[in-house]
């Protein structure tokens, strides 16, 4: 039973961590090599794609998606999709995918003359499911070694943990005030019943004893 409890807690923690890792903004330093649009047919990975551009027909089976292809300073490649999140989840309220695509196209550079940029994004790249992080913003930087401190993520996580702590405290206090007195009452009742049973047994044994001529105490 204890293992079941711990496995459940671990699963919940893993799920919450994955949720934040997917949803919170991350920033990559990269060099944009190409921007493109290609048609995507959504399948079992459709949950990892956003919707059509804000104001356009939603829920189509396939549509054209903008992509930004980039190379990281360590030489590894990264492909971002560039979709509106619109008014839905996650709450980035990104409505300017076309503008972002133009900015990205403007920042395309070659290996010989790199123009480094910081790409803000959320989501995961996963080759097995063909999913891509969604680029949210792009900004030019002079060198690839910029120090990026995720103040917003720190603030959001601090608020989240403070909220969880507060909930836990409230629940704990509720338990102490309302549930423990009940449990105490029940255990007192059980003790009483137990004691009564004991004395009944003693009296019964004493009565049996009288058959063999033992005097009752």
């Amino acid at each position: 039973m204890r293992y079941v409890k711990w496995i459940l807690i671990l699963l919940i923690v893993a799920f919450v961590a994955a949720f934040f890792h997917y949803t919170l903004p991350g920033r990559d330093v990269a060099r944009i090599v190409d921007t493109e649009v290609r048609r995507v047919d959504f399948g079992e990975n459709s949950i990892f794609w956003a919707g059509a551009d804000t104001g356009q027909t939603a829920g189509t089976v396939n549509r054209d998606v903008r992509f930004i292809n980039a190379v990281r300073p360590n030489g590894r490649v990264m492909v971002y999709r560039n979709e509106d999140t619109g008014w839905g989840w996650p709450p980035y309220f990104k409505l300017d995918s076309s503008n972002l695509q133009t900015e990205a196209a403007d920042l395309v550079s070659t290996q010989a003359e790199p123009q480094w940029v910081v790409i803000t994004h959320y989501g995961w790249r996963n080759e097995f499911m063909s999913i891509f992080p969604n680029a949210v913003g792009v900004r030019r930087v002079d060198s690839p070694d910029v120090q990026l401190i995720p103040y917003l993520n720190i603030a959001i996580l601090v608020f989240f943990f403070a909220f969880v702590f507060w909930l836990w405290r409230a629940w704990d206090r509720f338990k102490q005030r309302r549930i423990e007195p009940l449990v105490d009452g029940v255990s007192i009742a059980i003790d009483n019943a137990d004691r009564r049973a004991d004395s009944t047994r003693e009296r019964f044994l004493a009565w049996i004893g009288t058959w063999r001529g033992k005097p009752r105490k």
């Binding site: 709450p91 309220f93 990104k94 409505l95 503008n99 949210v136």
Partner: peptide, 11 residues
């Protein structure tokens, strides 16, 4: 917060 987000993300 929503108004600020819309401004900073898009404009």
């Amino acid at each position: 917060i929503v108004i600020l987000l819309v401004y900073f993300v898009n404009f």
